[in-house]
Amino acid sequence: MKVYVAIKRVIDPYVKVRVKNDGSGVETANVKMSMNPFCEIAVEQAIRLREAGHADEVVVISAGDATCQEQLRTALALGADRAIHIECDAVTEPLSVAKLLAAIAKRDQPELLILGKQSIDTDNNQVAQMLSALLGYSQGTFASDIDIAGDGVTDGGQRELKVTREVDGGLETLQLTIPAVLSTDLRLNEPRYASLPNIMKAKKKPLDILTPDELGVAIENHQEIIEVMAPAQRSGGVKVSSVSELVDKLKNTSKVIG
């Protein structure tokens, strides 16, 4: 089956972000960018499905300005077969991204779409669920295990997979009808690194560029960011020198223990 993976270019997770003084956003100029960590897990999962014989083709998609081709090349170096770049402004709301992805899915009919559970910049955790809704597909969010038995075709001819989800209070296993949309949680897998020869080969893999117009999607903004603020800073604490001093502070100064 065909597996499509959506990836996003974000500020590197190990960069300490700085809020701009004018409140218009966070500083992105000269800041290291990388593939969203949850998207790396999604790419890895798709490649593992191909290695296990479940997937024939792995396609990666990213919506954004031209710079996101860098992350698409990274995904190609990790093993994706081809890439689709949807050229549009970098800041696009989840519903718009879901509509763009849905347009591609309706055209190409992949059996599985894998996304990260959230991007670490906007922290929305929405696109996979929205995409699933727009396509009328089943959804397996926060996946920590994906199990496709045999070729995924049941006796009745229906295609199914099992997904174990990380939910509050434990794990939940669902059986999903294919086609399905999955979103990855951290423990689904450990993403691999791209080797130098694969990075070289990735440069020759196909990368198509599409526009929202070509996909018949009008990008609308449903929300307006009025201001981006730095969170309140905690006042500097003190170091204590012993357990007894700590217990005394907690009991008598902060009064948080009895």
Partner: peptide, 17 residues
């Protein structure tokens, strides 16, 4: 108001819906 960037920034957002 909602946190973004792992709580390292707060966004004041108006919905037009």
């Amino acid at each position: 108001v909602r946190p973004i960037y792992a709580g390292n920034a707060l966004a004041r957002v108006r919905s037009k819906d």
